[in-house]
Design a protein around this nucleic acid. Structure first.
Lengths: 186, 186
DNA sequence: GCGAAGATACCGACCGGACGGTATGTTTCC
DNA sequence: GGAAACATACCGTCCGGTCGGTATCTTCGC
């Protein structure tokens, strides 16, 4: 009827944009504001349009989660490949992916873990991924001390999530290097 | 009309029970399921009854938050009073309150921080509390290494929150003692 | 090359349900 | 008896989801 769908049709682009906007909304407008309406109009699409790509909100969040997990997984693999030292290799990659003081915008972990709080199924998926990853690197990253460093990394992105406005008062560079150093000791 | 309010009237008890049930629901049925309806009937009261004590859901969550923060604050004070060593005293207390492998049920931090994800105002309040506490103990707990231990503590309760069913595979006792030990070094 | 004929992408209106909140009773306490 | 402590009934809103329609893309016979 209207002239809204005169636009060129780019299903893949729209789909990806929907996911991006969902992630954005999730991290900076909070979980409660992640509605299909909000996501749709952020992506320049109507609610019906969104529901065409993702048959339910459930599907949307699942896709979002999968996407973020994929990105994180890839980042970690890349970081590990560039790390010559075996011991603590996974932990360092995990920490670097989580902190990465460089490029702006919260890490995928944030959106990832927040969405985990919504859905028990996603929680399960995250747990599975983490457990699998951990058992893969048990030889190099099984130490309790390394586990502790990973815990700290989780604490950091959590603070990131809560801080929101106003830069972190703490020096991230120093923190990161200290954490990395902790993974070197046996 | 019905015989539901034949019960003895104990406003203080009911009020407290409402808060307790709210916390319970928050940590083990998730944020989305924290509705006034659910809280009310978990406490054996109707929605109207709840709204009598807390004039809005906002008020309820605020009260819940304040309560949990009060408990945590008290726990930390107690733990600090029993700690003879000055350096890292606050951090140890924080860690002990967060981990406490002993008494069942997730720590107040969980409910506290989850509710933080709802409301920016609560987020602010938590940030203020933490910052104030930190500046009070800057002399003893200002080190980056201690900050790192506190981050790890946050990571631990987060995992607690996500693990839910199924006991933690990791040895908490050992983890706790290792974290405590980390606070001893200079 | 081109035009018919589905298939796909998207819009816009609507529905049912749940939730927060209000207004008004009814019972118990002091 | 009056105020406090509840219960009951009801309203407005928002959200997730459905449905029928329309516009654009793709396919394919010719």
């Amino acid at each position: 009827m209207s002239l809204a769908n005169q636009r060129k049709k780019e299903p893949d682009v729209v789909r990806q944009k929907l996911l991006d906007c969902a992630a954005q909304i999730l991290v900076d407008r909070g979980l409660a504001n992640l509605t299909v309406q909000a996501v749709a109009e952020a992506a320049g699409v109507t609610k019906g349009g969104l529901l065409h790509h993702f048959t339910s909100k459930q599907k949307l969040t699942e896709a979002l989660f999968a996407e973020q997990l994929r990105v994180l997984d890839a980042e970690i693999d890349a970081a590990m490949a560039a790390d010559p030292v075996a011991h603590g290799r996974f932990t360092r990659a995990y920490v670097r992916s989580t902190l990465r003081a460089d490029h702006r915008g919260p890490c995928p972990c944030a959106a990832l873990n927040v969405s985990t709080l919504i859905d028990p199924a996603l929680r399960q998926a995250w747990g599975d991924w983490y457990k699998a990853r951990l058992s893969r690197h048990r030889d190099t990253d099984g130490d309790l001390a390394l586990q502790l460093v990973r815990y700290a990394a989780d604490g950091v992105w959590l603070e990131d999530l809560m801080a929101q406005a106003g830069e972190p008062p703490i020096d991230r560079k120093a923190l990161l290097s200290q954490m990395i150093e902790l993974t070197r000791k046996r």
